[in-house]
């Protein structure tokens, strides 16, 4: 099933400038694997050896996946996964 992944400005160099990419997967982790296959380097910016990087938030629709099942959170057709990194600037 395909879901939409919303990519923040800082990571769009890895998606050819695209704000949204589509990816298949049954879980958040599988979706990230899929976008890594299409856009190498993205996974490393989101995850480290312990899981989701501490300064990255992943929202499935409007829910923080940390408060769901983390990378094992199930996704369904039409969902959107939004990447929100800690940012500074103004």
């Amino acid at each position: 099933m395909a879901i939409t992944v919303r990519v923040p400005t800082q990571l769009r160099t890895l998606t050819g400038g695209r704000e949204e990419v589509s990816a298949d997967g049954a879980t958040v982790g599988a979706v990230i694997d899929a976008i890594e296959a299409a856009h190498p380097g993205l996974k490393d910016r989101l995850l480290d050896a312990k899981g989701i990087r501490r300064f990255i938030n992943l929202y499935l629709n409007d829910e923080d996946v940390r408060f769901l099942d983390g990378l094992g959170t199930a996704v369904k057709e039409g969902d959107s996964l939004t990447v929100v990194p800690a940012i500074a600037g103004g």
Partner: peptide
């Protein structure tokens, strides 16, 4: 915070709501 076309705002009431460290645990 704002970067590029994206911005965030997080209001916090200490002891009653999520704080900045609840959201982003530590420095990148």
């Amino acid at each position: 915070a704002c970067v590029g076309w994206h911005g965030t705002v997080l209001p916090v009431l200490p002891g009653r709501s999520a704080c900045y460290r609840c959201v982003f645990e530590d420095l990148p």
